[in-house]
Amino acid sequence: MDFSILWTEFFGLTLDGIVVGAIYALVSLGYTLVYGVLRLINFAHSEIFMIGTFTSLGLSIVFGFTGLEEPLGIVLFLLVFLVMALASGIVSGMSAVLLEFVAYRRLRRRGASRLSSLISAIGASFFLVEFYRLTTESKDWDFPRMLSKDPIFSISSAYFTLDKIIILLGAFGLMFGLDRIINKTRLGRGIRAVSQDEKTAILMGVNVDRVISFTFLVGGVLAGFASTFYMLFYESTKFNVGFLLGISAFTAAVLGGIGNIRGALVGSFVLGLIQQYSSVVLGYNWRDVVTFVILVFVLLFKPTGLFGEALQRARV
């Protein structure tokens, strides 16, 4: 174990932890929102994210950027990136709505147990992974470097590159947008109402089916945007890209207190930082071990997550 590198690299690791945490946050919101309205862990959510990465990748191929040697100009890049993020958001969002319709809605109508839905979720996840494994030939797909990764400025060991800045601004913008949707719009209020008291929500005129579809849509769109950020940052995807990322995002949601939006955000940044710090101290290969250990320990010793009972009651 080498702690000295932790001190010399502290600012750089912190920056990367926040960037990675921002991507986790967008994905973990999908877990937590769906859990709020359905009390169901949507295990296929990681595949919704994976579909987004391939949507961005597909567009980069369609645009003819494969094997790009020179980065694009900033204006062109922003335009292309916006198109990719929107497309991934739409495709992931629609996939999530479809997923709910195919894998969960009928079970819910028939009053099936939550365990059945969980099994259906895992089945849907397998289906999507295998489908993408076959259609993408099980290989790593590289995303072209459309943007120079030379640092713009640095604070100690933290090198601020354009991609990190864009991811941070984009993610915070989306979180702010989500906050507005949840708190100010009619359907957003519906999500909160169903999360807090479904029976009363119906009595107030909330169409629960519609709210559930909307919840999946919002979660899927956020995961889609996250997938484009991911591609910009890591520049590669594979059919199983959703697995480890999904576990991290899910761990973040549990760490913050599942069902709690603020919890998911805090949990994501905490997890992103822990992963970065621990990967230099223990070695990068230990990163996922640390994630799993955190997941198991939270579930064992503090299942309500960081925000505990009080915020748990005040869901969403």
Partner: peptide, 15 residues
């Protein structure tokens, strides 16, 4: 059937 995490005003608006 009060929505515990909503404010009094938000609860009324749910009506």
């Amino acid at each position: 059937g009060i929505f515990p995490g909503m404010t009094v005003l938000e609860n009324l608006e749910m009506g």
